[in-house]
Amino acid sequence: MKGPLFYAKILLFGEYGIIKDSKGLAIPFNAYRGALKSSKNLTGKAQISNENLNRFYKHLASLKSNEVSFNLKAFKEDIDNGMYFDSSIPQGYGVGSSGALVASIYDKYAADKITVLENLTRDKLLKLKQIFSLMESFFHGKSSGLDPLNSYLSLPILINSKENIEPAGIPSQKEGKGAVFLLDSEQIGETEPMVNIFMNKMKNEGFRKMISEDFATTTDACIEDFLQGNVKSLFGNVKSLSKLVLKNFKPMIPTAFHKVWENGIATNDYYLKLCGSGGGGYILGFTEDYEKAQKSLKDYKLELVYRF
C-alpha cells in the first residue's frame, strides 16, 4: 500500500499572533512531502515511525469526541502489518511534519470524512480544523489544527480569526528579483517549550499590548500586501515585523542568529522572521534581491519558497 502525498506547510505570517486571534496566512510547500507506506521488514526510521503510529493509534482510541470517529480496527491492522509514514519533511523545523501525518491518517481512517472535493463552507473548514486540533494535540500538547488543515487541503489558507478561516488566492509567482526563502538554522526547534515561553510573556501587560496592537497590526498589513501583490509596501511592513520580532521574541530566535537578524535590518539585504514557533528549525526570509541576500548569507543554507 502507498497512500496519497501530503505536503509541508509554511506559515508566512501569523506565528504566535494566531494563538491570540489575529490574522495568519499559511501556504503549502511542495518541496517536502510524506505518504503512508507499508513494509514487511521495518528498520531504522520506518521502524520508529511505525512505533509512533502505534502510540498515535492509542491517542485516537482514547479521544472522547462527537466530532469524529475512526476505523480504528483497520488502522491497528495496518500498523501491525508494517505501516509507517515515509516523509521528507524535516521534524522540528516549523514546516508541519506532524501536520502532514495527521492529514494522511484522517484521509485514510476517518469515518464520514469531509473531502477536499466537496464545497468547503466555512463551517466545514472550522470542523476540519477542530478535528485536526484534537488529533495533533498528541504531538504538541496544544495544536491549532492549522498545519494538518493546510496539508490536507493543499491550498493557501487565510486565518482571519479562530472562527473565520478561508481558502486564499495568492498572486502567482513572478520571475522577479524578490523572494521568500528559508534559512536553515541547523538546530531542532521544539514547539511546546516555545509556546510556553510565549504564554508566560503574555502575563506581562506591556507584552500583551504589543501583541494586540503593534504585532497584530503589522502582521495584518503584511498579509494584506502579500495577497494584493503590493510588493513595495510589503517589504516596508516586513522590515517593521522583523524589528518587532527581534525586540520581543529573542528567546525564540537561536542565539547564533541574533546578529544575522540585525544585519538584515541594517543593510536591507533581507529581513528575517520566525517560521512557526522558532527555537530552531527554519527561519523565514524576505528579500527584494535574492542574489544579494544569497551573498550576504553565503555561510548558510537557503531554500527558495516564492518569487516576486
Score class of each variant (00 low, 15 high):
304 L>P: 02
141 G>H: 02
261 W>M: 12
234 L>S: 04
11 L>D: 09
146 L>M: 07
217 T>C: 07
118 E>H: 13
209 K>P: 04
161 S>F: 07
14 G>C: 07
176 G>I: 08
284 L>V: 02
301 K>A: 10
277 S>L: 03
57 Y>R: 05
10 I>S: 00
269 D>M: 02
300 Y>S: 06
91 Q>F: 11
52 N>W: 01
212 S>P: 04
163 E>L: 10
179 A>H: 13
43 T>C: 06
203 K>F: 10
68 V>K: 08
117 L>T: 11
226 F>C: 01
86 D>F: 05
59 H>R: 08
206 G>I: 07
199 M>R: 10
292 K>V: 14
75 F>K: 09
261 W>P: 14
192 E>R: 13
86 D>M: 03
219 T>S: 09
165 I>A: 00
248 N>R: 13
27 I>L: 02
116 V>N: 09
280 G>T: 13
33 R>P: 00
102 V>D: 04
2 K>V: 09
208 R>I: 13
212 S>G: 11
39 S>N: 05
49 S>W: 01
283 I>E: 01
74 A>T: 13
266 A>D: 08
274 L>Q: 08
297 L>Y: 11
96 G>K: 00
59 H>F: 04
30 N>V: 04
194 M>K: 14
81 N>D: 07
105 I>Y: 03
61 A>T: 14
252 M>Y: 12
297 L>K: 14
188 I>F: 08
26 A>L: 11
187 Q>R: 10
108 K>D: 10
57 Y>K: 08
261 W>Y: 09
70 F>D: 11
8 A>R: 13
13 F>T: 12
97 S>F: 02
81 N>W: 04
214 D>T: 11
206 G>P: 00
112 D>A: 08
282 Y>N: 02
180 V>N: 03
292 K>L: 12
146 L>R: 01
268 N>F: 03
131 I>W: 09
262 E>M: 09
299 D>N: 15
53 L>A: 06
301 K>S: 09
183 L>A: 06
27 I>V: 15
252 M>D: 14
291 E>Y: 10
182 L>V: 06
271 Y>R: 04
181 F>K: 07
106 Y>A: 12
140 H>F: 04
220 D>I: 06
49 S>C: 01
89 I>M: 03
94 G>R: 02
208 R>M: 06
285 G>N: 05
254 P>Y: 09
263 N>P: 05
265 I>Q: 06
119 N>P: 15
43 T>W: 04
154 S>H: 14
207 F>M: 04
171 P>L: 13
66 N>F: 11
232 K>H: 11
37 K>M: 05
78 D>L: 05
252 M>G: 05
166 E>D: 13
153 L>A: 12
31 A>G: 01
143 S>N: 01
239 K>P: 13
39 S>D: 12
205 E>F: 14
184 D>G: 06
137 S>R: 10
7 Y>C: 01
285 G>W: 01
139 F>R: 10
28 P>K: 00
69 S>K: 08
247 K>V: 15
163 E>D: 15
191 T>W: 05
250 K>F: 07
278 G>T: 04
98 S>L: 01
290 Y>N: 03
96 G>V: 00
293 A>W: 01
19 I>G: 02
68 V>A: 14
102 V>G: 04
105 I>P: 01
266 A>F: 06
274 L>M: 04
119 N>A: 11
299 D>H: 15
48 I>Y: 07
105 I>K: 02
168 A>D: 00
19 I>M: 14
272 L>D: 03
95 V>L: 07
169 G>K: 08
174 K>V: 06
34 G>L: 01
